[in-house]
Design a protein around this nucleic acid. Structure first.
Length: 341
DNA sequence: CACCCTAA
DNA sequence: TTAGGGTGG
């Protein structure tokens, strides 16, 4: 279920123009997984090409990136590497949930319960190695660089903000804050419409930004203490956290006691928990070797060939999106030439 | 999710 | 111009 810091931190609203000219390091798995879950037909089936290969992730990546690039936002995608041993329990838990959702989904489809089919279909999304390769391919055709993280993508994205190679990290998860991202952007999207789970209702979801310094100031803790709060609530490395302790209680306990070791009511549980190792995952994560990020250019032919020939996208739609993008890029360099040329 | 068309 | 609903693949 991830790290639930939401009740403890207050976002500032963010308008996309504020990111103009800035580098944003995107949590690739988080983003692609979101597309795979949400971009589906009415009965919960993902988009697919004529060969039956899923294309939801490519649709999401193409249209969103085209828009963000058109707004002159510089993107770098960060892919997860090898998962930490401590994450295995969470990975298995998720895979079990998917298995259950898949059974419910198939039953709902057979019985013609369309809304249920959609609800469960969303939970069945599995991100395969092939999809990752296809995503990287599309990114490279769009001129968008990507970085392969040695372990957690969020840790690598946070590192890029620390190195000032990126202005912000973008992810839906709050882990980036524990990894020390200077800034975290959530809801980085074009349309603000988002489906609320379990209901056929759409609400406006605005992009929001969290600044690391302000977060610590707001809750009155050090970074190390915030990590302890996270461990109490539960992270990917200790799913569920400690029984009976939610975000509010966790914050109270660390404020009163300073650190995990001093919290009386969990003293009997601490020895069974590798909390020092988890602290180190957040404080001293493995990070990629990066000194600079090279931004590329759109390769129109490759994009068209890949999406329209290979993946059955509509040539009209793809080329008109590319037209729009290339036009805004051309306008940009033209206005630069007026100043400097 | 994002696009596109239609209605008001 | 904006809101709502269907469609994309």
């Amino acid at each position: 279920m991830g790290l639930d810091l939401k009740p403890l931190v207050t976002p500032a609203s963010l308008k996309l123009p504020e990111l103009t000219g800035k580098v944003v390091a995107i949590d690739a798995y988080n983003t692609i997984y979101q597309f795979l879950s949400i971009i589906r037909g009415p009965t919960g089936e993902p988009l697919a090409n004529s060969k039956g290969e899923i294309t939801s992730h490519l649709s999401g990546l193409f249209y969103r990136n085209a828009n963000l690039l058109g707004d002159n936002i510089k993107l770098v995608y960060v892919f997860d590497g090898k998962a930490n041993e401590l994450k295995m329990a969470e990975i298995q838990r998720r895979s079990q949930l998917k298995k259950e959702a898949t059974e419910k989904y198939q039953l709902a489809v057979e019985e013609g319960r369309i809304e249920d089919a959609r609800k469960y279909g969303i939970r069945t999304a599995v991100l395969t190695d092939k999809m990752v390769e296809e995503s990287k391919k599309l990114l490279s055709y769009l001129g968008i660089p990507y970085i392969q993280a040695p372990s957690d993508g969020e840790a690598a994205a946070a590192y890029l903000t620390r190195r000032e190679l990126a202005f912000a990290a973008a992810s839906q998860d709050y882990d980036s804050i524990l990894f020390g991202a200077k800034k975290l952007v959530r809801n980085l999207a074009i349309s603000g419409k988002r489906k609320v789970p379990n209901r056929n209702v759409y609400i406006d979801v605005e992009p929001e930004i969290f600044e690391h310094d302000k977060v610590l100031q707001e809750i009155g803790l050090t970074h190390e203490q915030l990590i302890d709060v996270g461990i109490l609530i539960g992270t990917d490395f200790n799913p569920g956290g400690f029984p009976g302790i939610g975000p509010k209680t966790a914050l109270k306990l660390i404020k009163e006691n300073g650190k995990l070791e001093n919290v009386e009511k969990i003293k009997h549980l601490l020895p069974k928990m590798p909390y020092q190792e988890i602290r180190d995952i957040f404080l001293k994560p493995e990070v990629p070797k990066v000194d600079r990020i090279d931004f590329g250019e759109v390769n129109r032919e490759k994009v068209l060939d890949f999406l329209c020939v290979d993946k059955s996208f509509s040539a009209d739609r793809v080329s008109s999106t590319l037209d729009k993008l290339q036009k805004s890029i051309a306008n940009r360099s033209q206005s630069l030439e007026q100043w400097f040329g």
